[in-house]
């Protein structure tokens, strides 16, 4: 399971980085979303995945799952949700103001 998750993370990072390097604003936003998903999966995977064990120390069971990564991912997820919505609004406003989503045209003039 860890192997599968690691491959998923790798694919998400690859695609996210590719999108981040393009010139279109929307693609950059999508790239950041994919990258943050990758990072969240990574956080979950790195702690070791365990199935069928309770997340609390229990007298009856030998093993227990680590609850901390889930708590961390939940926090990170909420934060990235907020950031993404802010970023979407900001990009839309920028698009409205400049009538373009091409970053080449959003560079700013040379004398600045």
């Amino acid at each position: 399971m860890e192997i599968l998750m690691s491959i998923t993370v790798g694919v998400l990072f690859t695609v996210g980085t590719y999108l981040l390097l393009t010139k279109s604003l929307l693609r950059i936003v999508l790239g950041l979303i994919l990258l943050s998903h990758g990072a969240h999966f990574l956080l979950l995977t790195m702690a070791g995945l365990q199935t069928g064990t309770p997340p609390l120390l229990n007298l009856n069971s030998e093993a227990y799952a680590d609850p901390l990564p889930q708590a961390l991912v939940l926090t990170a997820l909420v934060i990235s949700f907020g950031m993404t919505s802010f970023l979407l609004v900001l990009s839309y406003r920028t698009y409205q103001a400049f009538k373009t989503d091409d970053l080449e045209k959003l560079r700013g003039s040379a004398d600045e």
Binding site: L20, L35, S36, G38, L42, M46, M83
Partner: peptide, 16 residues
């Protein structure tokens, strides 16, 4: 935001 994502990934490695 990119830096923050990198931060999360770094914490993942640290925790591992």
């Amino acid at each position: 935001i990119f830096a923050s994502i990198l931060f999360i990934a770094t914490m993942a490695f640290t925790y591992a």
